[in-house]
Design a protein around this nucleic acid. Structure first.
Lengths: 155, 155
DNA sequence: GTATCTGCAAATTTTTTGCCAGTAG
DNA sequence: CTACTGGCAAAAAATTTGCAGATAC
């Protein structure tokens, strides 16, 4: 393993431990793959890719591992109208641009959106922006009291 | 029917015609319900609600009708990690806030997001904002040429 | 040693489809 | 009339679950 891989493993071990989960080869492989790609793979994509690294892993385990990573804050779940859920291993603040033609998802740097579409257009590399959608997360009036646990910076 | 309902029907007729679809009682009932609520119902919610208005309608027809409305620009499809797809009959520019506790979805007025979370907090009525997510839509570098048809203002 | 995890297959859940009769235009 | 629609039931697609054996710690 390279130094970078060892670093990934350490990050993973720490996060898992902190959340009361165990380190396993399957979870490590899923995390390594997610962290190594800037594509935004589906569970099946991850399954197919990880098969090459790990002797045997099942699709169900990939689903379970992804869920575990998300719950540890090491991955993000992205859903769109079409097809399957996508997963993103980047944990720094950023946004996404989805191509209406090919469904590719591209990362957009930055935390706050620009003031106008033109600037957005420039920010999203090589991407011609036609629209956007903003979703806030938090707690509604009737749920303020139940607000427990952590508040994700980017949900 | 009230005047408002007649107006809904006219809007619907026009939009359907424009897209080469026919006006039917089922589509009208689905559209009327969607336009009358500020909740963001699932297909099943729509099915149950519409049953009261229309003698007989099937869940499959509700799915087909919703798909038709979306394709005519009369409704929006909203997907989140959890459970089913939600539908929104509002067609003016606005955003959404989702409660992490109860999954309720609240409308947020305005087109461009505010500069800071505090202001967002004020904008989203009674909603305590902890995070947000921004999704651009458009066409990636390799798909520029294929860019055909209409570009939705808010996808 | 023991609680957690994995793989497998079966179950669930959500959405789509094929087909024939019914209806809009 | 004739093509588009709706209902029904079956299919498909995506994700989850129960369980028994394997594994981390």
């Amino acid at each position: 393993m390279t130094e970078e891989n060892r670093s990934h493993d350490e990050v993973l071990r720490e996060a898992l431990e902190e959340h009361g989960h165990r380190y396993t080869e399957q979870r490590a492989a899923v995390y390594r793959f997610l962290a190594s790609t800037d594509k935004h793979p589906t569970a099946e994509d991850v399954f197919l890719a990880v098969r090459n690294d790990v002797p045997v892993i099942s699709l169900a385990t990939v689903y379970k591992s992804l869920e575990t990573l998300v719950s540890c804050g090491l991955a993000q779940k992205l859903t769109y109208g079409e097809s399957s859920t996508r997963y993103d291993g980047r944990t720094d603040p950023h946004h996404h641009a989805r191509c209406l033609a090919c469904d590719r998802i591209v990362d957009v740097p930055g935390t706050l959106p620009s003031e106008d579409l033109e600037e957005m257009d420039r920010e999203t590399t090589q991407f011609r922006v036609t629209g956007y959608r903003l979703e806030f997360t938090g707690y509604c009036a009737s749920c303020h009291s139940e607000e427990a646990g952590t508040a994700p910076a980017l949900a």
